[in-house]
Design a protein around this nucleic acid. Structure first.
Lengths: 157, 157
DNA sequence: TGAAAAATCACCCTAAAGTATGAGGGTTAA
DNA sequence: TTAACCCTCATACTTTAGGGTGATTTTTCA
């Protein structure tokens, strides 16, 4: 029952095409009769067929061709962007120097003072001095606090 | 100069159509000649026209019609979500206990071991033990590394 | 109920982090 | 040019962090 109506629905275009074709054949037979009388009727008849069937072809193609579906993935941002934007205002407000920022970044990456010193080609004492200045400027006591505060202020990613 | 070749390129379909139409007319004339001889040739001629022009119509429609596209926008969420989602899989994979996670969170908040001990009403030694287990499980050496790794794995915000 | 896992704590020791102070050299802008 | 930074380094000291080991209690789960 459901299948029957389903069949009609699915083949609606084909059925319509069949009906239309039958109508066309009827029209053609009618034209054939007239063609006996009118002068140059053959050309008119051929032209009519051409026009009708071209139209039919176009209609068929448009009706029966499945529209192509193109899936476009749309990016919707839902939170902090992956690309870090440095908060320069806060940086100048806190008066943090380039070198200090560098140390801060390596600090947040989990490096020890000794590792930072080696990476920046300076002594351990120098890093300790930078740290002390950083903690003072960020108003913190420990490196873990410094990292937390700096991240919160978007000074580091 | 560039415009000329551009013109041909852009109207290629139309030009092709014109050429094809000329060829068709030639074919029709040839068929017209034959139609004088063969019996029932008129029906064949008409049928030929019908078939040819139906094909032509379909071809035209497919060639000249812009492909119908249905745009389906799929939302892709980018960026770290503002609302932290705990990566429980990683948590169970690393076998990190509730208490250890608690310590880890306070650690990343910048608290010292002593402060964490006071906050959780346990001794400093206990916190140190938790830390040692955490570092072992996270495969790190320092608390700053632990914080970095844990954040990267979405174990802590 | 009994073993495993989790949580707790202690002691000792070393390593790293942090504080305080001083100081020399380089750049920059008033 | 001089004051104000910035970067550098040192020395001495204190505090905190971390490693190793062992032990007790609680919880959990098969």
């Amino acid at each position: 029952m459901a299948n029957t109506s389903n069949f009609f629905a699915k083949n609606k275009s084909v059925i319509l095409y069949g009906v239309f074709l039958a109508a066309l054949l009827f029209l053609l037979k009618w034209l054939e009769l007239r063609f006996m009388i009118i002068d140059h009727a053959f050309e008119i008849y051929a032209g009519s067929i051409a026009v009708i069937f071209t139209t039919l072809g176009i209609w068929l193609a448009l009706k029966l061709t499945r529209p192509k579906t193109i899936l476009i993935e749309k990016e919707i941002f839902t939170g902090k962007p992956e690309t870090f934007i440095l908060n320069e205002k806060e940086l100048t407000k806190l008066n943090i120097s380039k070198r200090e920022l560098e140390v801060l970044q390596l600090m947040s990456a989990g490096l020890s003072n000794q590792e930072i010193a080696l990476k920046l080609f300076v002594s351990l004492n120098t890093i300790k001095t930078h740290n002390a200045r950083l903690f003072e400027k960020l108003e913190v006591k420990r490196r873990t606090q410094a990292i937390e505060t700096a991240k919160r202020l978007s000074i580091i990613p």
